[in-house]
Amino acid sequence: MRISATVAAVSGALVLSAFAVPAAQAAGSDAGSYRADVAKIREAAHAASGKAALSGSTVASPAADEPYALNVTFSNVKVHSGKPIVVGAAAHVSVPVTYTLTHGADVDITASDFLTGPYIYKGTYAQPTNMLFGEDAGTCTVTSATTASCKATIDIYPGDGDLSNVDAGAWKAGAEAIALNGQDPTSTTFDITKVGLADQGGFASPNVTRLSKLTVNAAPEPVKKGKTITVTGKLTRANWDANNYTGYSTQPVKLQFRKKNATTYTTIKTIKTTSTGALKTTVKATVDGYFRYSFAGTPTTAPINATGDYVDVK
């Protein structure tokens, strides 16, 4: 979900600030409990630091209470198996993440109130402009006395405002762990100083890209050999600001042809989309086969091949 990111310092380690929990997702769910617990710990860590928020607001003075630095580190963070994270205009996207958790002998990662999970962030670790988390805490399998192999998911809801168009492109990954140690964040007797927090960023993440769509229509059909075939189409991509699909302008797109009964396409020419994403070009009819447009993609937008349109040449 989209947040207003801030930064705090806990025992010398940078800790990213709290994030909001939509009521629709939080009510009566384990996911909501996980998000709410993490949010409260991060909120306290930020307040304790006395740092200014990115929005320009300030904390008058550092709070006396803060979580202690938990003896946990992370490594081998792998987001979506390294593949670009492609997100459409509205549909929920679940991104798998695996990582290794290393901890001190004093940390009980099997405790029922030990929480860990990954996240991805846009911008820098010190000043992220957006952060995305999972609905649920990660699960870990103990591999030694001080290490565990963990897995989790990051949940993206573009229809709920998790992303804006400016978020497309490069992101980084992080992971966190919280030891509540019997403390209930919803209780009036909650003692933040008895809660441990570890947060580590700077891990590689694949780009978060906008889902693209591409159409093609070759006409007339059938057509006499030697006559002109007009091939039209349109390239659009997810608009996260409006939750729809809009034309992708001035992009190079290949017109390709595959003969009937052949298995591969050959590029005929490359043209550019118009300001509205439209495509139009002409070719001479030679043999029966399929025409398609092919877009190679950009760092912000996923590649796409249109479904071939068959033309019968008489």
Results as ranks from 00 to 15, higher is better:
174 G>D: 05
134 G>L: 05
197 L>S: 07
95 V>L: 08
198 A>W: 08
210 R>M: 14
138 G>T: 05
199 D>T: 12
185 P>H: 12
158 P>R: 02
131 M>E: 13
129 T>R: 03
126 A>S: 03
66 E>K: 15
78 K>Q: 14
129 T>A: 06
101 L>H: 03
134 G>K: 01
104 G>Y: 04
73 T>H: 03
163 L>N: 08
169 G>S: 12
106 D>L: 03
93 V>W: 01
161 G>V: 11
81 S>G: 12
101 L>T: 07
89 A>H: 05
97 V>H: 02
144 S>C: 06
123 G>N: 00
132 L>F: 06
119 Y>Q: 04
205 S>I: 11
141 T>P: 01
200 Q>A: 13
157 Y>T: 08
192 I>E: 12
191 D>L: 10
89 A>F: 08
86 V>G: 00
118 P>I: 05
84 P>A: 10
128 P>I: 00
195 V>A: 05
130 N>G: 02
156 I>S: 09
152 A>N: 14
157 Y>H: 14
206 P>Q: 06
109 I>N: 06
156 I>K: 03
188 T>F: 11
92 H>D: 14
85 I>H: 00
169 G>I: 06
136 D>A: 15
183 Q>P: 01
78 K>M: 12
130 N>R: 01
129 T>W: 02
122 K>I: 02
151 K>N: 15
158 P>Y: 12
81 S>M: 04
203 F>Q: 04
184 D>G: 04
201 G>W: 06
193 T>N: 14
70 L>P: 11
157 Y>F: 15
122 K>Q: 09
194 K>N: 15
176 E>Q: 14
123 G>F: 00
71 N>Q: 13
195 V>K: 02
